[in-house]
Design a protein around this nucleic acid. Structure first.
Length: 235
DNA sequence: TTGTGATCATCT
DNA sequence: AGATGATCACAA
């Protein structure tokens, strides 16, 4: 089995959903083996393993393009590491920030809004105590933000994009934003990219990206999988 | 080098 | 414990 094999891209949301459903209940080890891959013992040196494996399995386009994972469908794929109760353990990266452009864009045209317009969330067991190969894949959810979700995300985005657009990026910390936050997104803390200072002069700053807080994705899963007072974990 | 996929590991 | 800031691997 060639290690570069990959599922063909799905022709419809229905097909994408069916494929995701077929993966639910299986383990990452089984899925990796079906592509001739070996799951790493842990993710310390393979942080993108789960996401990239899922891309192969569902037929997402490869590579690092600034497009949705399924361009024809306009769907973004996100794996979600969850604890035994089905709660996301990590924030979700949305997109990198172009400090010199963000001030010229309205929410409606923002990359954050476009990326989150349609998302296939795939919960996967994320406990470090479980070897990667034994972690189970959960029930996926094809999601779009509700009007309320979008209004809240827009509020956060406008505050953060406003600061960046006014050259105050370095005043931003991960504390800002109820659901959406800005955090470093770089190879290391010495990374720098072109930006503007508060006077509008060119300067260099740490590359940052937008992230969804785990509380936001937790709410999404809860809203869609909660059938009663006892939640049914999507695993 | 930048953007994709994210999780790690330290600090509060 | 939970979240923030830091970091890892790979492709183009």
């Amino acid at each position: 089995m060639p290690t570069r094999s990959r599922a063909r891209s799905p022709g419809s949301e229905h097909e994408l959903r069916a494929r995701a459903e077929a993966l639910a209940g299986g383990t990452l080890g089984e899925l990796a083996a079906s592509f001739g891959l070996l799951a790493p013992p842990d993710l310390r040196r393979a942080k993108g393993f789960v996401g990239e494996l899922m891309e192969r399995a569902l037929g997402a386009s490869a590579g690092s393009r600034a497009e949705p994972d399924f361009p024809e469908l306009g769907v973004e794929l996100k794996t979600l590491p969850v604890d035994p109760s089905g709660k996301p353990q990590e924030s979700t990266f949305v997109c990198t920030i172009a400090p010199r452009e963000i001030g010229d864009v309205e929410w409606e045209a923002s990359l954050v809004r476009r990326k989150l317009a349609r998302v296939l969330w795939v919960p996967v067991e994320g406990m470090r105590s479980v070897p990667v190969a034994q972690r189970r894949i959960g029930t996926a959810l094809l999601w779009s933000p509700s009007p309320e979700d979008e209004a809240e995300l827009r509020f956060d985005w406008e505050q953060l994009a406003g600061l960046i657009g006014r050259g105050q990026e370095d005043a931003i910390t991960g504390h800002l934003g109820k659901w959406l936050q800005v955090r470093p997104k770089a190879a290391h803390s010495r990374s720098r990219r072109r930006s503007f200072d508060p006077e509008g002069s060119p300067t260099l700053s740490l590359p940052r990206g937008f992230y969804l807080r785990a509380t936001f994705t937790a709410r999404i899963l809860q809203q869609h999988f909660a059938l009663g007072p006892r939640r049914q974990p999507p695993l």
